[in-house]
Amino acid sequence: MEPDRAISRVVHAIIEAERKLPSDVFECINSAVPSGGKAESVMNAIKQNLEIASRCNLPMCQDTGVFWCLASIGRNSGVSLPLIESVINSAAAEAAEKGFLRKSVVSEPYKARKNTETNLPPFIYYELTDGDAVELSFLLKGFGSENCSSIRMLRPTEGEDGVVKAVVEMMKEAGGKPCPPVFLGVGIGGTMDRAAFLSKKAFFRESMDAELSARILSSVNELGIGPGGLGGYPTALGVSLLYEPTHIAGLPVALTVNCWAERKAVIRFERGEL
């Protein structure tokens, strides 16, 4: 067990994620062919911004986000839960300081809204997985886009069409607010909260239904919201979808909207590294 080394790996990964997009996300942005006019201006500004962030070691966006973390813990990892919690908390605190991240968290959401001045607490989920590794998946979640995230409890008979319609309606409502072009996470099934959780976990997993993801992507792009909400293509650059069993009476559909700056870090600890 080397908690200090583990913490420093997590800190480094978070700070790096604020300054550079994962290569697949960057490639999506770089290879998108905008429809010209303002769409092209916005995409060029985004590329220029990424270049400056990387060169100057600045966060790419001032909303450096809240720390959303999924700890996926191998059943045979033998690692103690309190240790994992402590690594996440310590690393988040250190990254916020060393990475010059904005302190964007307030306590008492509907009352005093006093800034915690640490960007803490992180919002942590735990799950058990097969194997003996521990993986920490951090989503650095900005709230311009999070405010456009939503959930619908569909009727059980609405099927695929209902899912597509729900996501398109939520994105129509979002319009230019979430800094398009967006990346979408869709969570389907479970209970209301499980669907919402899956919609964030989806950013870290292969889509479980590539066909439906593609259909949602093309339907959202047909809205023509465009980069910066100024019309044209692209409105969305990726859709990942996860589902799980649900009740006979329901079809929960949750959407997490992520801005073009899909900032995330995955840190994997093999057995003995934590």
């Binding site: 962030a53 100057c56 966006c61 900005g142």
Partner: peptide, 27 residues
């Protein structure tokens, strides 16, 4: 409308910054 999410780009256009009021609001 400024370019959304382009925080580093706008940082490079700013020559000076000073707090005028409500410092208790932090960021």
């Amino acid at each position: 409308q400024a370019y959304g999410g382009c925080g580093a780009l706008y940082s490079s256009c700013i020559l000076s910054a000073e707090t005028v009021a409500y410092p208790e609001l932090g960021p």
